[in-house]
């Protein structure tokens, strides 16, 4: 399959909304129609042809050559196919994704995977704040699919996570898994202060613990949980090292007892 390639001409002078550039919205469009798609977020009109050199191909496989932190909403509402970004992206990458795969070989801004329902996002760099989280006024964040961040994540990763899995191979900043409704958040590195803040349900795995753990999480002892074998089998294709880690006995902390208290943080035993 020949990829549909968007090569960035120069650094954009304004934030751009790339949400139209997903396989399900580009299918069956002619080159001229694609060139005319408007991307601006200010009053200055900017079309695809102004920002990118376009090399036509199958819209099921889209490649962005060159990235910038002003390229927002890449993969927004994506339903199928693949998008590969060679560079950084702005905010809300993969927001409301409902299928397909989004690969970002760079850094992602805040709200990557926000409200995502299905599919896969892999970010080889770091992710900004509120990874998978809801926008203001929304009641739930990510509700399905898988997000993998190969480096660090900002504050409130997995905020109001409802379903699905977030894997962070680096560190997570403060309030990882805050207000989680359900789902699974795994941090290979160290978590910042107060992970699981006011979480209701769901699972947070912290392979290297946290700087400050809330006293509203109750120690249930060290357990070799069978469900972690199922989790390991699921995450092995994404992170084999973490898959091995979750098979080891872990300390189970119930919480957040300041709220519903049916969630858990799985913590190194010592």
């Amino acid at each position: 399959m020949t990829a549909l390639v968007f090569s960035l001409r120069e650094q954009p002078m304004q934030r751009l909304d790339l949400s139209p550039l997903v396989p399900n919205r580009l299918a069956n469009l002619s080159p001229a129609e694609i060139q005319r798609i408007e991307l601006q977020t200010t009053r200055q009109r900017l079309c695809v042809g102004d920002v990118f050199r376009v090399q036509m191909g199958d819209a099921e496989l889209i490649r962005f050559e060159g990235g910038h932190e002003r390229l927002d909403r890449i993969g927004y509402g994506m339903e199928r196919g693949e998008i590969h970004v060679h560079g950084d992206v702005g905010c809300q990458a993969g927001r409301l994704m409902n299928g397909g795969k989004l690969y970002i070989a760079g850094t992602a801004g805040p709200w990557a995977g926000s409200g995502m329902k299905a599919g896969l996002i892999e970010i080889t760099g770091s992710a900004g704040d509120r990874l998978g989280g809801p926008l203001a006024g929304e009641t739930a964040g990510m509700r399905g699919g898988v997000v993998i961040v190969r480096k660090d994540a900002g504050e409130r990763a997995g905020d109001r996570l409802r379903r699905g899995m977030i894997i962070i191979e680096g560190d997570a900043a403060a309030y990882a898994g805050s207000r989680m409704i359900a789902g699974t958040l795994i941090v290979r590195g160290r978590a910042g202060p107060l992970p699981g803040y006011l979480m209701s349900r769901g699972t947070i795995v912290l392979a290297e613990g946290s700087n400050v753990l809330s006293p509203t999480f109750a120690d249930c002892g060290v357990h070799d949980l069978l469900s972690n074998a199922l989790m390991a089998a699921f995450i092995k294709p994404y992170s084999s090292e973490l898959a091995e880690f979750v098979r080891t006995p872990l300390r189970r902390l119930m919480g957040d007892m300041a709220g519903v208290g049916k969630g858990e943080i799985l913590y190194p035993p010592a």
Partner: peptide, 10 residues
């Protein structure tokens, strides 16, 4: 506790 891994729910 309900856990969903992919399309399987436990």
């Amino acid at each position: 506790i309900s856990k969903r891994f992919g399309d399987k729910r436990y």
